[in-house]
Amino acid sequence: MLSKFYPDHYVKSSFSINYEKLYKQGYRGILFDIDNTLVKHGADANDEVVELFKRLKSIGFKICLMSNNKLERVERFNKPIAVDFIYKANKPFKKSYLEAMNRIHTNKSNTIFVGDQLFTDVWGAKRVGLRNYLVKPIDPKEEIQIVIKRYFERIVLYFYNKQSKIK
């Protein structure tokens, strides 16, 4: 039952993923969460993010940001990187994942999702059939509703890690 929340990959950060290898494997699109995936909650895109997105574009990736946040926040973050985005994405519902792929002209077989939350980012990606990467949150200081979700995430990740060691 908990396995429906298990990520396909659990990595240290968005910056530690081997994107060149993914491109060689045929992936062409990346959907990213923003807050605590690429930057601390509410922060603007920093130099590290700008460089990552330049690299991803030079590799050939099409990118779309997906955030449950408001337009102003997502536009502000996106200004220096200039990619497609969806705000108020209502993750984990499927509609925005499908819309994001439509915008960047990819499909579920050649798109990955990168995010920091199991019950929104990963579960939504899994519901659509996307390969997904769960990253460790950048900043432990979060809003109360996320802190509560993190408690339940730790339970799921405990069993995920236990099962991963068996394999």
Rank of each mutant, 00 (worst) to 15 (best):
N161S: 13
V135Q: 01
L157W: 01
I148G: 10
Q145L: 09
N161D: 11
I146A: 05
K136M: 11
R131K: 14
Y133E: 02
F159V: 00
L130W: 01
R154A: 09
R150D: 07
N161A: 10
Y160L: 05
V135N: 00
I144H: 11
Q163I: 13
D139W: 07
N161L: 12
Y160W: 06
L130A: 03
I138W: 04
R150S: 09
L134H: 01
Y160C: 04
V147A: 13
P137W: 00
I138H: 04
F159E: 03
V156Q: 06
F152R: 08
Y160H: 07
K141H: 10
V156E: 06
I144T: 13
Q163K: 14
Q163V: 13
Y151N: 13
I148E: 08
I146L: 08
P140C: 00
N161W: 07
E153Y: 03
Y158M: 14
R154D: 06
I146Q: 04
Q163F: 08
R154Q: 10
P137H: 02
V135A: 00
L157N: 03
L157D: 02
F159D: 02
I155C: 07
Q163R: 12
E153G: 04
E153R: 04
R131Q: 11
S164K: 14
I146H: 03
Y158P: 03
E153I: 03
R131A: 05
F152L: 15
Y133H: 06
K136E: 11
L134I: 02
K149R: 15
I148T: 13
S164W: 06
I155Q: 07
R131I: 11
R131W: 07
P140W: 00
I138F: 05
I155S: 06
E153Q: 07
F159M: 03
F159Q: 03
P137V: 01
D139M: 12
L157C: 06
F152H: 10
V147T: 14
L157H: 04
I144G: 06
R150T: 13
L134K: 01
I146F: 08
Y151D: 09
R154H: 10
Y151K: 15
I148W: 07
Q145S: 11
P140E: 02
F152Y: 12
N132C: 07
K149I: 15
V156N: 05
K136Y: 13
L134N: 01
E143A: 13
K149W: 08
L157F: 04
K149S: 14
F159R: 02
I148V: 15
L130T: 01
I155E: 05
L130N: 00
L130P: 00
F152T: 11
K149F: 13
V147G: 08
Y133I: 06
P137R: 02
N161H: 12
Q145V: 14
R150E: 07
E153K: 05
D139N: 15
I148R: 11
K136W: 11
D139C: 12
N132K: 04
Q145R: 10
F159I: 00
Y160P: 02
E143C: 08
I138Q: 04
N132Q: 06
I144S: 12
E142C: 08
K136I: 11
V135W: 00
K141M: 10
I148F: 11
V156S: 05
D139L: 11
